[in-house]
């Protein structure tokens, strides 16, 4: 199996603090409302308690990335050595193909600078031996980086409830699902 770096989103440990999303903003200073990594609260059907379980989501660095396929100018490139899908916004001609085609909505529309943008897993940091900003910013180690060919974790799932199942793309992100506490609840406070 080829080497594939991937985000491991441990929803069981995630406390929804947004540090990952803020760390990304702090690293790249994107335009207001352009958010490469965001924290998505799970819907009621996927987790029973409002705003209490989250997926930290950015680009999934897919095995067969649609963005690479549709980009007419090779602004998206999947790196041979580690499978990271790198986007070079300076090459982008703002044809919006990746924005429209990515089923995970990872390519973002920067209307101000008129270009597509997305998470490139902080390749420049990775190449310098550092962790991506979001991973470094996580205070509970809920967001980590793994290498898929070496991953041997029976709890890791590719398509947890609430995360789109797009097998054609074969996203690299892996998840551990949030647990639910045993509940003992008084009905009324009074």
């Amino acid at each position: 199996m080829k080497k594939q770096m991937a985000f491991m989103v441990n929803s069981k440990k995630c406390i929804g603090c947004y540090s990952c999303a803020m760390a990304c903003k702090n690293q790249y200073h994107q335009e207001v409302d352009v958010v490469w990594r965001n924290l998505v609260p799970l819907e009621k059907e996927d987790y029973p308690h409002n705003d209490r379980a989250f997926y930290s989501l950015a680009c999934n660095h897919c095995a067969t990335p649609i963005c690479v396929e549709v980009c007419p100018v090779q602004a998206h490139v999947k790196r041979e050595k580690d499978g990271i899908v790198v986007h070079s916004s300076d090459k982008c001609i703002y044809c919006r193909a990746c924005i429209e085609e990515c089923s995970y909505g990872a390519s973002k529309d920067n209307k101000v600078l008129e270009r597509a943008e997305k998470c490139s897993m902080c390749v420049e940091r990775i190449d310098a031996g550092l962790k991506p900003a979001c991973v470094q910013g996580c205070p509970t180690k809920a967001l980590t980086l793994v290498e898929l060919s070496e991953l041997n974790d029976k709890d890791a799932v590719q398509y947890p409830a609430g995360f789109g199942k797009h097998t054609d793309l074969n996203p690299s992100t892996r998840f551990k699902v949030a647990s639910v506490p045993e509940l003992v609840m008084t009905k009324k406070d009074s």
Binding site: R52, V180, M185, K188
Partner: peptide
């Protein structure tokens, strides 16, 4: 075990959550 009138984020991480009268 988390004991709290609110089902907090901490409660969601517990093994048992007890909602007590405030």
């Amino acid at each position: 075990v988390v004991i709290d009138p609110i089902l907090t984020q901490t409660a969601a991480k517990a093994d048992v959550y007890v909602r007590i009268k405030t």
